[in-house]
Simulated assay, not measured.
Amino acid sequence: MESNILGTNVITQIGILVHDIEKTAQTYADFFGMEKPQINQTDAPELAQTEFKGESTAARAKLAFFDMGSLQLELIEPDQQPSTWREYLDEHGEGPHHIAFVVGGLQEKVKIMEANGMPLEQKGEYPGGRYAYMDTFRDLKIITELLENDE
């Protein structure tokens, strides 16, 4: 395996899958003495351009973000459409799904990771950038998300 594939070792986000985002977000807010964050939904399929395992999908998810200093905690409640979120939640239950890193040159990083046996699982767009979930579970015991933000 190549060394320092991502060009960074700074984890920017931890993603956690949940069945009930309203309840879980309130529990986290109470636990940390914070305000409950706004719960948003991922963009519609025509904007998000989500692909799961190489196929277009209408998958959407409700998201809540807690800013925890240098790290962001993301809660994810997926719909029933095919996605990494739905598959992982169905197979593993609630809990950690991914760690995320902000990278430059997302497409090149995806190619490098795939060449190192870490296939692209899901990708899509969000306002101001794009993401790619890489299947690193075999090697890292968690999925890795790459985030590339527009300037």
Rank of each mutant, 00 (worst) to 15 (best):
I39A: 02
I39R: 03
N40A: 12
Q41S: 13
Q41M: 10
D43G: 02
D43P: 01
A44K: 12
A44R: 09
A44E: 13
A44N: 08
A44G: 00
P45I: 07
P45E: 02
E46Y: 10
E46R: 07
L47N: 14
A48Y: 08
Q49T: 05
T50K: 08
E51N: 00
E51C: 01
E51R: 09
E51H: 10
F52Y: 14
F52A: 03
K53E: 11
K53I: 03
G54V: 03
G54A: 10
E55A: 13
S56Y: 14
S56F: 14
T57H: 05
T57G: 07
T57I: 06
T57N: 05
A58N: 14
A58F: 01
R60E: 04
R60T: 12
A61E: 07
A61F: 00
K62W: 04
K62H: 06
L63S: 04
A64M: 11
A64I: 08
F65H: 06
F65K: 01
F66E: 06
F66Q: 06
D67N: 09
D67I: 02
M68D: 00
G69E: 02
G69Y: 10
S70M: 07
L71S: 01
L71Q: 09
L71A: 06
Q72A: 06
Q72E: 09
L73W: 01
E74K: 08
E74Q: 11
E74P: 07
E74G: 05
L75A: 04
I76L: 13
I76Y: 09
E77R: 06
E77I: 03
P78E: 05
P78C: 08
P78K: 07
D79N: 11
D79Q: 04
D79M: 01
D79C: 01
Q80R: 15
P82E: 14
P82M: 09
P82S: 12
S83R: 09
S83K: 11
S83Y: 08
T84N: 13
T84I: 15
W85I: 03
R86K: 15
R86D: 07
R86S: 11
E87L: 06
E87V: 15
Y88G: 06
Y88E: 15
Y88V: 15
L89I: 00
L89A: 07
D90M: 11
E91A: 15
E91L: 14
E91S: 14
E91Y: 08
